[in-house]
Simulated scan of single mutants.
Amino acid sequence: MNILSLRYFLKIAERGSITQAAAELHITQPALSRHVSQLEHELGVKLLMRHGRGVRLTESGHLLVARATTILADIDMLSSELLACQTEPRGSLSVGLPYSWTENITAPVVKQFNEQYPDVRLTVIAESSETLEGMLKSQYLDFAVLSTIENDPEIDSRPAVHDPMYLFGPHGSGLTELDTITLADLAEWPTIRQHNATAAAKRTDQLLARVGRSQNVLIKTSSSMLLELADLVHGFVTMPGCAMGSRRYDMEAVPIADHSVTWTVARLRTHPPTAAMKAFAGVLSHVVHARAADGNWPGVVLVESAFQLGLPDRAAGHGLVEMGAGVHDERLSRDDRGVG
């Protein structure tokens, strides 16, 4: 019996829909249906009954859910305990990092990690916090950097980086002439934003609503197209300060007063940190501190010990280190902005 098929079946049972489960698992609906059919063939019983609104479990399906939940929990715990016993980083490691970190943080981290730990098979996903959180809970990621999580019992998370929000615009837009803008000012700029409601977008909308304003949305698009479209169509984008390290676009940026995002280091509580996870977190911490110190991440505030995955909750997340304070206007140029 395939362990992956059991995990897929539990997700279908949880959602009551093959379509919803496939979307969360990031596979196609026909592929997920084939896993169910294979299970039913191997077990010789019908597990699901389809109806207009989705699927429901048969009696055999309910029994499989109960047994599979226990079996998979035991397998996961055994795997985690064995991996935690390793002293040298090896095996596979899957990590999720924010899309806005791609150039400034993720690229140099991956380069350094591969050079230092060639025995680890690394997978790195750059996505929105919401997508990464779902992948973490589905056990497709070993740990991730997410925006603030509200007391989730499944996830051990600790604040690591307080990142100021900026308004980015094309060269010549006049942002460099400003020291800062307010949230009320933000409503005056034609913005390009992600098509899905991310945590950062929701937070921005909530803050604007408090002052009786809303964003002037010009275009909605995917996260990978935000800065490119802003550069091409002369629109404006709200993004965390980490994106200041981009060298692909000739952009200007100005900080938005009283608006920031807190990035947290997160892992499942049922998965003890492995040697590979600790090693990656160490490299990540080194690069984050270096970027803050060299001015490529203005205004950032780092939380000491947050990247030390082996520490208990009460020992981590104490001590703030403010980097780049007082740096407000920054020009992003292909010539003078790098990630190296």
Results as ranks from 00 to 15, higher is better:
Met1Thr: 12
Glu127Asn: 15
Asp335Ile: 12
Gln194Ile: 09
Glu322Thr: 12
Leu82Ser: 04
Ile256Met: 01
Ala275Ile: 01
Gln29Asp: 04
Ala253Tyr: 07
Ser214Gly: 13
Phe9Ser: 02
Ala187Glu: 07
Val65Tyr: 06
Phe236Ala: 01
Lys111Pro: 03
Val65Gly: 08
Val36Phe: 07
Val265Lys: 01
Arg7Cys: 07
Pro255His: 04
Met251Ile: 09
Cys242Pro: 06
Ala290Gly: 02
Ala290Leu: 06
Ala253Arg: 01
Leu132Phe: 13
Met277Ser: 03
Gly52Gln: 15
Leu226Gln: 09
Ala275Phe: 05
Ser100Trp: 00
Pro30His: 11
Val301Leu: 06
Leu6Gln: 02
Gln215Pro: 08
Met244Leu: 13
Ser17Tyr: 09
Ser305Trp: 10
Gly61Arg: 10
Glu24Lys: 15
Glu42Lys: 13
Asp163Thr: 07
Leu268Met: 13
Leu78Cys: 12
Asp142Ile: 01
Ile27Trp: 00
Asn114Glu: 10
Thr19Phe: 14
Leu132Lys: 05
Ala316Met: 13
His171Thr: 09
Gln38Cys: 03
Asp335Thr: 11
His41Tyr: 12
Ala243Thr: 15
Ser333Arg: 03
Leu232His: 08
Gly134Ile: 03
Leu320Cys: 07
Glu304Ala: 11
Lys11Glu: 15
Gly295Asp: 04
Phe9Met: 05
Glu88Cys: 07
Ile219Met: 14
Ala22Val: 05
Lys137Arg: 14
Ile181His: 05
Ile256Cys: 02
Leu175Lys: 05
Thr69His: 11
Ser147Cys: 09
Asn296Ser: 07
Leu72Phe: 11
Ala187Trp: 05
Ile27Cys: 10
Arg50Pro: 05
Glu59Cys: 09
His171Lys: 12
Ser17Ile: 11
Pro240Ser: 10
Phe280Glu: 00
Glu177Ser: 06
Ile105Gln: 00
Thr180Phe: 05
Asp74Pro: 09
Arg15Tyr: 09
Thr58Gly: 08
Ile12Met: 14
Leu309Ala: 03
Leu332Thr: 01
Glu81Asn: 04
Asp142Gly: 04
Phe236Leu: 04
